[in-house]
Amino acid sequence: MSVKPNPAFEPAEPTPAPLPTPRLAAAPSPADAPAVTLPRRRLPAMTGRYLVRALALLMALVVWHVATVTGFNFFVNFENVPAPLVVGQTLLAELASRDFYLHIAHSLGRVALAYAYAVVLGVLTGVLIGRSRWAEDIILPYIELFRPIPAVAWIPLAILMLPTEQSSIVFITFLGAFFPIVLNTVHGVEQTPDVLVRAARSLGANNRAILWHVVIPGAMPSIVAGLAIGMGVAWFSLLAGEIISGQYGIGYFTWNSYTLVQYPEIIIGMLTIGGLGTLSTLLVRKACTPLLRWQAKGGRP
């Protein structure tokens, strides 16, 4: 992960305290806790819920199958949509080919690079905007103006302005991840409780210590939410970026299948992006949980 654990609020001992801590304080309600960390539930209940989720996905497969087999055509037309079994066969063929993995590897590399830039620049910019009125007045108008522009719209300018195809794609992917990270960081930083800043000051903390010990850890739940959202957006911006590429990438794979009228491949490309996006978002959340350990233990302020 590109977010470094902050030694200042990382507890000294890695093992959880075996204390009989009485849970006198009210547990955080799901409404006010950001949906970053799920509260630890009883295991059977959780497996039951995963079962339901798996069944829900399976149901879509069944509907898809029935619709293609019967040639369903009422407003939505399934006549030219490949059946799930055909897609499954094509997937097996793709999984056996070296190229498919090359596509994935290229995409993963681009997302990793773009995301790393987005995390570093996004968090820095967010903290700056959240802490300084000057920075807010100078930078925020740009953020507001550029944020609604979809990734695809950047393609021509990216090609014109950046030296290589690779850098254009990484730039477009970066933009997707950057905005949610900046805005969530700003939001988190601006919500620093005043009483905690006062407490820190009366304990002798200077501005830098307050930033490091109060503002950033306090903003962390919001920052982590931004990091998770940013990862998802990075993947769907990647597809737009890889329209440029003439060689490799899962977005290119999907786009190219469309021009070659290979319908099963289109669906495989789509599902691969969805799957990789979900997995990498999960990874971001997992990597960030140590930063939010205090919250998992009922530590809402």
Binding site: A17, L19, A25, K297, G298
Partner: peptide, 10 residues
């Protein structure tokens, strides 16, 4: 309670 987080205390 030195290792506890404040949120778990009364």
């Amino acid at each position: 309670f030195e290792d506890a987080y404040p949120g778990t205390l009364s």
